[in-house]
Simulated assay, not measured.
Amino acid sequence: MVVVATFSSNIHRVQQVINAAVACGRKVLVNGRSMVANTVVARQLGYLQIPAETLIELRELRDLPRSEVVVITTGSQGEPLSVLSRMAMDDYRKLPLETGDTVILSSSFIPGNEKAISRLINLLYRRGAEVFYEKTSEVHVSGHASQEELKLVLSLTRPHCFVPIHGEYRHLVKHAQLATSMGVAAERVQVLENGQPLLVSINGLRLEERVATGRIFIDGKGVGDVGMMELRDRRHLANHGLVMVLLGINQNDGAILYGPELVTRGFVVEEENTEFLDEARQELCQMLEEHSLEVLSDWEEMQAEVRKTLRRFFNRHIDRRPLILPVIFEQ
């Protein structure tokens, strides 16, 4: 069985796969929600030509030799819930992969998806499949228009105003320059960034005041209430752990009434590092003895000194940077 994974929006690529399947005498199974939906619409509009006897349903697969079937599906970017990913994890009983099957990833590696795609390829090989993708095989040509094709579109449409909207910033700039070279006036060509509104009127183009854009973090029932500071602390906790310092001080004479006690989470195993934590406590005690009553009675100053002392100690001894949370009680 041959499995071809591509973007469901790339109808021309789907047609190419169908043509190849017909030429080889194979039946075609279209699988995946978006792939099926786009195929139905494309056929209704006349953009996709599939011989009636070529297309099969999933239930018909068991009655055909696997060597006579081509499956067109999605998941070429390693999307975790896609049909291809489920097949790779042996979690799609209706369409299992077997040793000797061929999987073709007909797409480029979109930046940011490399790790997911590499994991997918490894899983496919674990199922015994042979995998072809752009870095090892000449099975994919970009579906994005080249410069000459973009020129053709500009010459056919002859836009009065032009705003490139797809690609990274360097792509937008080059596309804008191309439009200018094709006769669009420079004052009617505008490169935008996310959050930059553009007013289009009979008078031309005008930039409006920027608006806030970007990702909004949803945490439980809260939407956008967790800011960058909170996310930074969470990352710090995840990477380095937490050390809580419990300390009781007499506000009148600066005497230590309790502690310092160190409580750690995700930093070191307390039972196995008692000597190390005792050394840290001694370091804190020495710091407290060296400071004046004025410093000891200032909560913020005291917390800063505790953090600084422990940060230096941990960095010097084990080269770690836990989140240090002093809790100071005064009496």
Results as ranks from 00 to 15, higher is better:
residue 76 S to Q: 12
residue 222 G to D: 15
residue 270 E to I: 07
residue 108 S to Q: 09
residue 169 Y to N: 10
residue 326 P to W: 02
residue 148 E to R: 00
residue 261 E to L: 08
residue 236 H to W: 05
residue 173 V to N: 05
residue 189 V to D: 07
residue 164 P to I: 08
residue 45 L to I: 01
residue 56 I to F: 07
residue 153 V to A: 03
residue 39 T to P: 00
residue 246 L to T: 13
residue 312 R to M: 13
residue 242 L to W: 02
residue 35 M to V: 12
residue 213 T to W: 00
residue 220 G to I: 00
residue 6 T to H: 04
residue 130 E to T: 12
residue 88 A to W: 07
residue 71 V to P: 07
residue 261 E to K: 13
residue 200 V to Q: 01
residue 77 Q to C: 09
residue 67 S to H: 09
residue 140 H to I: 06
residue 122 N to W: 09
residue 13 R to V: 11
residue 29 L to T: 12
residue 25 G to K: 00
residue 69 V to F: 10
residue 173 V to L: 15
residue 238 A to M: 12
residue 320 R to D: 01
residue 64 L to P: 03
residue 8 S to A: 15
residue 218 I to Y: 00
residue 151 K to T: 12
residue 319 D to Y: 06
residue 21 A to M: 00
residue 114 E to I: 06
residue 242 L to V: 11
residue 138 E to Y: 10
residue 276 F to P: 00
residue 305 E to D: 09
residue 24 C to G: 02
residue 299 W to Q: 14
residue 101 D to Q: 06
residue 13 R to A: 15
residue 111 P to Q: 15
residue 50 I to Q: 06
residue 271 E to S: 15
residue 46 G to R: 01
residue 167 G to L: 04
residue 193 E to D: 06
residue 306 V to Y: 07
residue 134 E to L: 13
residue 81 L to C: 09
residue 14 V to W: 03
residue 95 L to T: 08
residue 63 D to K: 02
residue 4 V to L: 05
residue 134 E to M: 15
residue 177 Q to W: 04
residue 159 P to M: 02
residue 70 V to M: 06
residue 162 F to Q: 00
residue 210 R to P: 03
residue 112 G to S: 13
residue 161 C to G: 04
residue 193 E to V: 10
residue 189 V to K: 03
residue 228 M to I: 15
residue 188 R to W: 02
residue 117 I to G: 00
residue 81 L to I: 14
residue 270 E to L: 10
residue 79 E to K: 09
residue 79 E to Q: 13
residue 126 R to H: 13
residue 239 N to W: 10
residue 311 R to I: 02
residue 106 S to P: 01
residue 132 F to R: 15
residue 64 L to A: 05
residue 80 P to W: 06
residue 322 P to G: 07
residue 276 F to Y: 06
residue 131 V to P: 11
residue 144 H to T: 12
residue 165 I to L: 15
residue 96 P to I: 01
residue 66 R to Q: 13
residue 284 L to R: 02
residue 212 A to C: 10
residue 169 Y to C: 07
residue 94 K to E: 15
residue 254 G to L: 04
residue 303 Q to N: 15
residue 83 V to K: 08
residue 128 G to H: 06
residue 65 P to S: 13
residue 300 E to M: 12
residue 124 L to G: 05
residue 2 V to M: 08
residue 184 V to M: 02
residue 41 V to I: 12
residue 314 F to W: 12
residue 231 L to C: 02
residue 93 R to E: 11
residue 65 P to I: 05
